[in-house]
Each structure stands twice: as C-alpha cells, then as structure tokens.
Computed example of a mutant assay.
Amino acid sequence: MKAIMINDKFPGPNLNTTTNNNIVINVINNLDEPFLFTCKLGYKKRSHTLQNLYDSLDLHVGQCFGVLVTADQEPKDHYMVASTRFLKTVLTSTALLRYDGGKGAASPELPKPPVGWAWSLNQFRSFRWNLTASAARPNPQGSYHYGKINITRSIKLVNTVGKIEGKKLRYALSGVSHVETETPIKLAQYFGVADKVFKYDTIKDEPTKVDTSDILVQPNVLNIEHRSFVEIVFENQERTTQSWHLDG
C-alpha cells in the first residue's frame, strides 16, 4: 500500500494559528513524481516574486516553494491537501490548519484538483520576479537589465531515451548518458588531471540529429567560461512530460 506522508506523518500534522496571522510555510517535494498542494486559503509565492494569490500549487520533482498563508478564513479547522499529479492512481494526504478558538470541523469534502497539464504549465508561467524588491543587483556583465546582455553561447539540451546494446534503458542529453567517474570530477580538476579522467564538451552546442539507437554512456561535462552569459534551451522530443532540476 502506498501513501503520501507530510513531515513523516499520515495524516499530516496539525498547525495552530490565530485569525489574521500570516504564516510562512515551506513546501518541498521529495517524491519521485509531481504533487499538488491545495488549501482553501490564499497563497502568495514569496522569495522576491510578485505576490499572486493561489488556491493550489503544483510542485514538480525536487521543487521547493515558500508560501505566505494569511489566516483570514472562517475560524474553524481547514484542510491542506497534498495529492499526486499526472498519475492514473491518485494518492492523497491531508494536514490540518486549526484556528485558536475556532468552532467547527474541517469540511469532509476535499477540493478537486485542476484537470490537465496545461493548468500546471500556465501556473508556472505566472510566476514573475519582483525586480523592485531589495537592492539593485547587477549581473556579472555589469548590466542591471538582462535584456541588454549579449549572449556569448547558446546550448541546446535534447533529452532522449534509448537502450544500450538493445537491453538496458538509458536516458540521455543530446545522445550522451552521464555516468560518474571513478575519480570525482572536481577532484580531478583540482589536481590538473581532468584530461585523464573525462573529456569536456562531448556533446555539441547545437545537436543536428540525435540517434536514440546509439547512446553513449560517459561523463557529460560542459566547459563554460566564468562570468559568461549562456543561454540554455531545453528540448523534449519524447511523448511524455519531462522534469528538469537545475542546481547551482
């Protein structure tokens, strides 16, 4: 039996609040698939983004959102719901937001999730950075406006899937499926022996045609100059939605 746990609990924990309090909740997706976080309270995505109101938030694999919840609803118990997305079997878990002195149990009818992947895509496109928040911060090229920066390099990453020797299924970027080296990459760079451990730029910046029947299994490391401004284009040629995690 599978279930979604919130903070290692099923059902999730109870959160106590007072009417008109502002609560910051950090929501992290540690699952292997996307999930939907829903509540009948108003959400405002923070971290210097424009403060928009949301009833639900789609969190893809590895994503972390900080949200500001205003306790301005009827003083009683309210459910916060986490449910799986884009899967045939829907799993659901709840946490309870409890008003101090509130009267009444949470509604047993959980809110229905939005239908279709287009809703998730449009929500993500609605997130906008607040350029007036905090102090002005120039980018590495000295400009305060990213639209005025000259792109020094453009890299297209095409995700593909294929089988190695007709047996083992592997996912790849532009025809190369990454494997870790016996000597850690950063260690090899530090001691100046990178050329003996791996090769830089095994994929082209603009792949012409990716042959899924000939996937290479080797370290996939791109050599990029420090403080250069690089445009990265993600291209999905598969028939299924792919999740990307950018770190750094």
Rank of each mutant, 00 (worst) to 15 (best):
V67C: 04
D100L: 13
P75K: 00
L131K: 10
Y99C: 07
L131N: 09
K103C: 07
L97S: 02
L96G: 08
L110A: 04
R137W: 11
N139V: 15
S126R: 14
T94Q: 02
K88M: 09
A71K: 04
F124H: 11
D72E: 05
R98T: 15
S107G: 04
R85L: 10
K148P: 02
S143W: 00
G147C: 05
K103G: 06
F86R: 09
G116S: 07
K88F: 03
I151D: 04
A135L: 12
I149N: 12
K103V: 13
W119V: 14
G116W: 06
L68Q: 15
K103H: 07
K112W: 03
S154Q: 14
A118R: 15
Y79P: 09
Q73M: 11
H145T: 13
L87A: 10
V81W: 00
Y79N: 05
Q141S: 09
T89E: 13
K112L: 13
A135V: 15
S154D: 07
K88G: 09
N150E: 12
N139C: 12
G101A: 07
Q63A: 12
M80C: 01
D77I: 06
H145N: 13
K103D: 05
L96P: 12
Y99W: 01
K103N: 08
G147Q: 07
V69T: 08
S143T: 04
P111Q: 08
V90R: 05
D77Y: 01
G104H: 04
Q123L: 05
I155A: 02
R153N: 09
Y99F: 07
A95C: 03
D77P: 00
N130I: 03
A118D: 10
F86I: 12
E109Q: 09
S154V: 15
S107W: 04
G102N: 05
K103A: 09
R125K: 14
S154F: 03
R125C: 04
Y144I: 06
N130R: 04
R85P: 01
G102A: 03
V67G: 01
S126D: 11
H145E: 08
K148H: 13
